[in-house]
Every structure is written in structure tokens, then in C-alpha cells.
């Protein structure tokens, strides 16, 4: 219940003198909260992994053999200063699209691809230019490409989409990014597994389902989580490919 001593504020009248100092203080504290939180939250954002589109390198054109894992890989046979022969590139279209349509029917064939590099430490992906400029068959004999089986492995780490991981988005992994990664995978962007520790010199690998199938939908629930999973590993050029058994996925405690 109010009493005479307490100041009484009426919105459309002048503020009582005894309330002014309190309200000035409240305004200062209020704005102070916004200034402090804005600065603190803004300046303590985690640093994304060193990765991204390399528009500064310009458009790259290389020739190689297409392999369908089923996600198309390019085994580079004729490279340039940046991308040497023996390199294996994952391929993506613009946006959240893979290049399955362009690569269809070209398996084992010699193609020339043109696009922009995505780099995360090493160069592992190219975003192809649109239309026929992006990928076209070239004359010549395609050499046989070796695939080296590495046995069955149990790996630990995170399922991501290869494009965002390579810096198309920064940050490009984690649970806050899960829906985006799933959308990329639905669009046939190659999925990858980031390993806690390097395997055969590589800290990530392309993942597929068993027997030349796509990554099973069951794995989508675990995108961005830290999981362990089993599968057959193979090396194609300098790229590891894990044929993941979705039933073996387990969330790691802690």
C-alpha cells in the first residue's frame, strides 16, 4: 500500500524530484548492461577453423578422372601450380548442391573441371562453376586409378558436410550448424567425418554408406555430435573414404 512519503510517478506528468536520481541511476545501469554485454559477448566469439573459399587464388582448372563413391571425386591427373597430380578433390556445386547430375555417366572418364577452391589447411574441395564450364569431358585415355583398402576401423569424431567444414561457412560444424549440414547432405554435398586424431596422416575422411551407397539417413541424427563409428576405410589418392555402418554409431560420453 502506498504512503505519502513515497514518490509517485505518473507517466504524463513531470517526474517527482525525489525519484529523479533513482531513475537516472536506473537508466545508467540499464544502458551499462547493454554496453557491457554487447562488448563482452561480441568480443569473445570462438575463432572458426582456418578455412574458406579462396577467391584470391582465382578460378582453377584441372583435369582428372571422375570416381563415384557415390559422391563424385576427382583424381587429378593434370594439375597446375596449386593442385598437383595425385591430388583427390571433393566436388560441390554452388550453394547446398552436389555435382551428381554433372558427373552422372562420367565415372572413370577423363574430365576437366573449373571452379573455386575451398581450403582448410590442405586443399580438398572445389566448388565447380555453373553449367558446362564446371565439368566437361575431354579427349584422352583415362588412366586406371588405384584404390587402396586400409581395413576396418573404429573412428571417433564428428559427422559434417564437406563444404561447410572446408570453410563455405564459418563456423561450419557443431550442433548449432546441424540443420544447415543436414540440408547440404540432402543436396548431395559430400559428407565428411572429422577424426579426433589423424588416420594415415589425415584428420578427416569422406564418408559413404556401405557398398557404394550414400550416407544412410540414420546418420543424419548424429550430425554435429561427437560419436564413434565403424566402417571400411580406403585410400583414393590422398583422400580417405570411410564406408560407414550407421548401426555402429555411438554417442561418446562426456
Amino acid at each position: 500500500m502506498s504512503n505519502q512519503d513515497k514518490p509517485f510517478f505518473v507517466g504524463y506528468l513531470d517526474i517527482p524530484g525525489s525519484l529523479r536520481r533513482f531513475l537516472v541511476l536506473a537508466c545508467l545501469v540499464g544502458t551499462g548492461i547493454f554496453v557491457a554485454t554487447g562488448l563482452l559477448i561480441g568480443s569473445t566469439q570462438d575463432e572458426p577453423a582456418a578455412s574458406g573459399f579462396r577467391f584470391d587464388y582465382g578460378r582453377q582448372t584441372v583435369t582428372g578422372v571422375i570416381e563415384l563413391t557415390p559422391y563424385p571425386l576427382l583424381r587429378v591427373t593434370q594439375g597446375n601450380d596449386l593442385i598437383k597430380p595425385g591430388k583427390t578433390l571433393m566436388l560441390s556445386g554452388q550453394g547446398k548442391f552436389g555435382v551428381d547430375a554433372q558427373a552422372m555417366g562420367l565415372e572413370g572418364g577423363l574430365v576437366e573441371v573449373t571452379g573455386i577452391i575451398l581450403q582448410r589447411g590442405t586443399i580438398d574441395m572445389m566448388q565447380l562453376a555453373g553449367g558446362r564450364r564446371g565439368m566437361k569431358m575431354v579427349d584422352g585415355d583415362a588412366p586406371d586409378m588405384e584404390t587402396e583398402p586400409l581395413g576396418r576401423w573404429k573412428v571417433a569424431g564428428e559427422i559434417c558436410d564437406g563444404k561447410c567444414l572446408n570453410g563455405a561457412m564459418r563456423p561450419g560444424r557443431g550442433l548449432a550448424h546441424k540443420a544447415c549440414a543436414a540440408l547440404c547432405l540432402v543436396g548431395d554435398v559430400p559428407p565428411v567425418f572429422v577424426s579426433t586424431q589423424p588416420i594415415e596422416g589425415s584428420d578427416f575422411m569422406l564418408i559413404t554408406g556401405p557398398d557404394g551407397t550414400r550416407l544412410p539417413k540414420a546418420a543424419y541424427d548424429h550430425i554435429g555430435q561427437f560419436v564413434s563409428a565403424e566402417g571400411d576405410l580406403e585410400r583414393r589418392g590422398d583422400m580417405l573414404v570411410l564406408k560407414l555402418d550407421a548401426e555402429t554409431i555411438e554417442v561418446i560420453d562426456g
Binding site: G95, M169, L183, V186, G187
Partner: peptide
């Protein structure tokens, strides 16, 4: 317009 764009949907 970022995470949910650029896809076929």
C-alpha cells in the same frame, strides 16, 4: 537467409 538458404528447398 544463411543456414536455410541456397538449397533446392
Amino acid at each position: 537467409n544463411w543456414y536455410f538458404s541456397f538449397s533446392k528447398s
